[in-house]
């Protein structure tokens, strides 16, 4: 697989609000074509990160570059960004709002009907922004990011506040754009969203990077079992001798076991039986990003 160009390089980015450290030494790289999720609970520094990257905030320390260039207004015109809630002139029509953005981006008005059709708002193009529902406003926000066909989209909680239908529509839109080869950087506190949409993920907590990597690799991980037996002492002894176990840990009356790749619960059951122990209970846990995430943020 060819090594793709880095689109965004972040080095030691740090930002404090008074005594509160919102972001601490964040170092991340996003490459062309990735759908990069920034995952973290509320207050973990996701919006701070995206605000710095899009010129709204200035970092205290560290640096970042887009397309190998230092960030500037002209670099930002090559990026379609939606940070927090979409902000438009409430008294202007959708068309006029998009015309202002097109003028800022020097991209002409030709794209406006297309992007409005993409987000299914073409019929409402003459309506004033304040007359739109929350979901429509969010869709217009996404339409505005598509103007000028930018190489990169930066989306902060794009499904925030939407109903299930709206969430599905926005996700669909993001995936369509990803299929077109756009690089997408998306912040979210919703794990399932990141799992469904992103190729890569960085997990933040209290401004610190906890983990980063390919979503599939993080998901694949190891299989987890919870096992019980009438003789716990013997169980622990047998597990210690078992060759296809990564590690195990006794928890109350049960033992949590992590199996090596390629082994399953039947193998463990057979191994224990051969050693003269009948397992009274075996529960399989599929390790998800959620359990990874919860484990990480608990630490």
């Amino acid at each position: 697989m060819p090594i793709l160009n880095p689109i965004l390089q972040i080095k030691n980015l740090t930002k404090s609000y008074g005594s509160v450290k919102a972001l601490s030494n964040l170092t991340v790289e996003v490459r062309q074509g990735q759908v990069f999720g920034i995952l973290g609970p509320n207050g973990s520094g996701k919006t701070t990160t995206l605000s710095i990257l899009t010129g709204v905030l200035e970092q205290d320390e560290g640096s970042f570059s887009w397309f190998g260039e230092k960030s500037s207004a002209s670099v930002r015109r090559r990026i379609g960004s939606l940070i927090e809630t979409p902000s438009f002139y409430p008294y202007l029509s959708l068309e006029n709002n998009l015309k202002i953005i097109a003028q800022i981006k020097d991209c002409g008005f030709g794209d406006i009907p297309d992007v409005l059709k993409t987000v299914k708002l073409f019929e409402r193009r003459k309506s004033r922004f304040f007359t739109l529902s929350l979901g429509m406003k969010q869709r217009l926000g996404i339409a505005s990011t598509l103007l000028g066909n930018p190489e990169v989209l930066v989306l902060d909680e794009p499904t925030n506040g939407l109903d299930p239908e709206g969430i599905a529509e926005v996700r669909e839109l993001i995936m369509q754009q990803a299929d077109k080869g756009k690089t997408i950087i998306m912040a979210s506190h919703i794990l399932s969203e990141v799992e469904k949409v992103c190729t890569d993920v960085a997990i933040l907590k209290s401004g610190h990077l906890l983990a980063e990597g390919n979503v599939r690799a993080l998901l694949k991980g190891e299989s987890l079992l919870e096992v019980k037996a009438d003789n716990p002492q013997l169980l622990l002894q047998i597990l210690g001798d078992c060759p296809f176990i990564n590690h195990f840990r006794a928890e109350n009356s049960a033992v949590r076991v992590s199996l090596k790749e390629g082994s399953n619960s039947a193998d463990l059951n057979r191994f224990a039986f051969e050693k003269g122990l009948v397992l009274s209970e075996i529960i399989l846990y599929q390790k998800t990003l959620e359990s990874q995430f919860l484990e990480l943020v608990k630490e």
Partner: peptide
């Protein structure tokens, strides 16, 4: 009030603009 200064910065105007 409309947060449009923020939006315009994001879309590629400078603070001087």
């Amino acid at each position: 009030n409309n947060k449009t200064y923020k939006q315009q910065l994001i879309f590629g105007l400078s603070r001087t603009d």
